[in-house]
Design a protein around this nucleic acid. Sequence first.
DNA 1: CGCGTCCCTCAAATCGATTCGATATCAGTG
DNA 2: CACTGATATCGAATCGATTTGAGGGACGCG
Lengths: 337, 337
Amino acid sequence: MSTASLAFSGAGPIAAATRQRVLDAAAALDYSGPNPLGRQLRRGRSGIVGVVVGDSLRRSFRDPVSIQVLDGLVSTLGPLDLGVLLIPGSSDPSGPAVDPLLETAAMDVAVIMWGGTADDPMLGALRRRGTPTVLVEGQHAPDVASVGIDDRGGMRQATEHLLALGHTRIASVTLPFDRCRGEGLVPPDQMDHLDWEITRRRLAGVTDAGVTPVAIWETPASLVEHGRTAGTALLSSPDRPTAVACQSDLLASGVVLAARELGLRVPEDVSVSGFDGLDLPWLAPDVLTTVVQPLAEKGAAVGHAVEDFLSGAGPSTRELPVTLRIGTTTGPAPDLS
Amino acid sequence: MSTASLAFSGAGPIAAATRQRVLDAAAALDYSGPNPLGRQLRRGRSGIVGVVVGDSLRRSFRDPVSIQVLDGLVSTLGPLDLGVLLIPGSSDPSGPAVDPLLETAAMDVAVIMWGGTADDPMLGALRRRGTPTVLVEGQHAPDVASVGIDDRGGMRQATEHLLALGHTRIASVTLPFDRCRGEGLVPPDQMDHLDWEITRRRLAGVTDAGVTPVAIWETPASLVEHGRTAGTALLSSPDRPTAVACQSDLLASGVVLAARELGLRVPEDVSVSGFDGLDLPWLAPDVLTTVVQPLAEKGAAVGHAVEDFLSGAGPSTRELPVTLRIGTTTGPAPDLS
DNA sequence: CGCGTCCCTCAAATCGATTCGATATCAGTG
DNA sequence: CACTGATATCGAATCGATTTGAGGGACGCG
């Protein structure tokens, strides 16, 4: 048995002839190589990284941002012989707070994309199981590794760019505030229960630039159609903003489409900025002004955080830089006289 | 030990008091529930379904079709306590033919989205391991389960719709022919090495309607930008087609964008049809004429095929129907005189 | 011929849970 | 008090691989 084990794993001295003999015998006996389950049990490792992609698979998958990060992650994990197990987030509030997979599936490390709040039940479940956890874009906690970008600084840059162009009436279209996912104008008194870290940080970036948005519109998800709804609402009124700073590219492209439908020229009548740095082929020939975040690198950073855990190191923290890309959707503020 | 097992799994008679005693002891000892690895080994099942999403994760993930099918699959698998392990397809030809995960990962069933050719090395590897396999949109083989749609009939319907509108000069924009993924006009002599089953079937649907395309343009992937390239090339010539039947919605929307950029009106100057039935918010207010396939149901069908295997049944075959949705991108053929 | 190196064989322990069959407990009866 | 069920608990085997250590050939070298 031990020789056969060596023949398959190659971990130890074995003569080529013996190895071949073992392989031949295996073929004759219809033995198709070591059973991964036995190996995993013995090793004490499953070779699996559980990834919670968002609160609903469908929604997350329609989001190119998650997808590209996931792609970077998978590319980094592959060479380490690690696989990615997809775990749906808690989709409906009536069901269980966390997916049963999170409680029972075998995994060496868990990754939560779009990390929620600090008291997220998923974090609790993972802590209980003792599973090392990497949190992406979440609130930092001492026992989890985090990966994030400079949301706040990026949004500040974008806003300062609008200021430099002379805009004073700037509106903001945001990602969801919390798991309720409201849609519409946010009254000032609702600003305090802003649970979602990423939304909070990007909004803080606007404030950092010294701007108080003339209107804040919350969307239930980062989708073109929600951007269009927001754009239509914000740009229809006579005292419309001259610039709209959006918290995602999909939202921004929805706002651009809405502006065009209302007969407004972009950027002559209204400037629009985004966040993420996606390719938006259908916006052509326009190029969105946006804050570019390194999505594949973000995935790779998550992969390295996972690697750290597996090599016995403690939780690590990584923050990636962003850059402002100036496109054709922002321009000088129109003369309002 | 056995009592503890019963206390956690609940599969057997156990007094509530004893159960509580076990749970308390577990808490005191920092035992966080049964180790999935041991359970899996004993049960002989990993509870994992390996899914090969396409030949490159990034590419597949940008394809809303795969995503929606995957979503339907995950939704069906969740209640069965099965998880989805993501397996990258063979991305570059220089590397190994199949991903190591396919050879070594623990999985009860494998799913290949976008099944390739009959001699696909992945099928060989899975057969060798004895892993039951579900093939989506592939060539049927006796020992694998298949899930597909009526590609051929759907494309025939779309083409007949164009014929009924009086079109005679019909071009076709296709998905890749093989793993080489060429781009450009396909000379007639290349038609025979058309390895990719789905492309073949959809092209056959056009022929079934009695149409010989005036031009066939192969794209390297189902993406808007490749559709735009195709559209620009096909519609620039003076003897341009009056209708373009595309093999996917993303390609079709690229063709529509190209037509608009060339100053052609859709559908007055050129009609465009797609395939898939996606939501394309950026095409608004236009609605693409397309063949709608039930994507979530397709994912569910894959889930049921998996279920069949796990309940001991043999490979099953499922074909789902499609419907033609007539939108605003097709209209009567222009008067060419 | 003796000695040291390799490589192989064999036996046994271990990873952690499940599950069958056997035993222990206990209430209720004749 | 002994007996019968019913129910709860326990013991031991099992899933399949890895790994360690002891021991045995084979081979080359001095």
